[in-house]
Computed example of a mutant assay.
Amino acid sequence: MTTTTPGERTDPLQAVRDTPGRGAPGGFAGAIACEWTKLWSVRAPWLCLLAGLAITGVYTFYYASIARINDHPIEPVGNAAASSVVLTQFAVAVLATLVVTSEYATGTVRASLLWVPRRQRVQMAKVLVVAGVSFAAGVVYAVVGAAVAWGAFDGRASFEAGTALRQILSVGLYQALVAALAVGAAFAARHPAGALSILVTLLWALPSMLLGLGGPALAAVNDYLPHGAGDHFVRVGAGAPYAPATAMMIVVAWASAAHLIGLYVLRRRDA
C-alpha cells in the first residue's frame, strides 16, 4: 500500500512508468512496435507506396523510350530508376509526413506521448519505422524501374550486376533519408500543408529554379541540396563534383538537421 504525505502531489502514471520488465510502456522496442502497428492500420501508407510504384513504371518507361528514340549514348539501365527518384521521393515524403501530422490532427499524439514519455524516443521510433519501410520501397522501385526500362531501352542501355546492385541499394538508402528528413519537417511544422510545402520547396522547387536559371554558381549550390546530392549518389556517370560517399553524407546531414529541428520543436511545444 502506498502512502503519501499531506500536500504531496502524486502522478498516477509514475508507478506504471517505473514498473520494470520488458513490457513496460516507454521501452524503445515497444515504441517501434507501436509505430509499426499504427503505420499499417490505415490505408494511406499503402496508397502512397502503390502510387510510387506506378510512377516508377511510367517514368522509367518514358525515360528509356526517349533515350532510344533520340539515340542517346548507352548508359547503365539503373539510371532510369535513379532518375525516377525525382518524383517517387514525394510518395515517401507524403507517407512520412502523414505518420506525424495525422496524430496532431486527431489529437492521438497526446496518447503517444503519454505512453512513451520520452519524446526523443517517439520521434526516433517513427524515423526508424518509416525509414525502414522507405528503404524497402526504394529497393522495390529500383528493381521494377530497371526491369521496365530494360525492355524500353531496346539495346540502348548496359547491364553490369555490381553497378545495378549499387544503384538499387543507393535508391533505397536515399528514399530512407528522405523519409527521415520528412519526419523531422513534419514534427517542426505539425501540419501536412506546412510540412509538404517545406519538402516540395527543398526537394523540387528550389533545385528546379537553380538549374533553370543556369550558371555554374547556381548549379554548385544545387549540388549541396538534398536532391542534388542524392542524384549524384544514385546515378552513374552524371559528372558529380564529389565522390558518392560525400553525396550520401550531404543527404545525411540534411536529414539529421531536420531531425534535430523537429526534436527541438517537439520538446519545446505542448502537444
Rank of each mutant, 00 (worst) to 15 (best):
Y104D: 09
F233G: 02
L266T: 11
D231C: 11
I69E: 15
L53M: 01
V183N: 03
V265M: 08
V143H: 02
R267F: 04
T5A: 14
E8L: 11
D231Q: 15
L165W: 11
P12T: 10
S208I: 09
V234C: 06
P241T: 02
V94D: 02
L53Q: 00
A179N: 05
P216N: 11
T246G: 05
G262M: 10
V200A: 14
V251L: 04
D71F: 13
S41E: 12
G107H: 05
T163M: 09
R166W: 00
G230F: 01
P241D: 07
Q123D: 08
W150R: 14
A240L: 03
V129P: 00
S170A: 15
G52V: 05
V109C: 06
A96C: 06
T201W: 12
A44T: 15
K126E: 02
V178A: 01
A195C: 05
R9G: 13
L210Q: 11
L47V: 14
G194K: 02
A82N: 04
P192S: 10
L225Q: 01
V221S: 12
A67L: 12
S256N: 11
S65P: 07
D223P: 07
P192I: 02
C34V: 09
A31C: 04
G184W: 03
G162W: 05
N70Y: 15
Y141E: 08
K126C: 01
W254M: 01
Q14D: 04
V77H: 03
L169H: 09
K126T: 00
H227K: 12
T2D: 13
G212A: 10
A146M: 15
G228Y: 04
T3K: 13
R9N: 14
P12D: 04
F153A: 03
V234N: 06
T4H: 14
L169W: 09
M248L: 15
T3F: 14
D18H: 06
M209K: 12
V77W: 02
V236Q: 12
L196E: 05
W46G: 05
L98V: 07
S208K: 05
R22C: 03
G145S: 08
L225V: 06
V100Y: 01
P117Q: 13
L263R: 00
A164P: 10
A44I: 13
T3V: 14
V251P: 07
V127M: 09
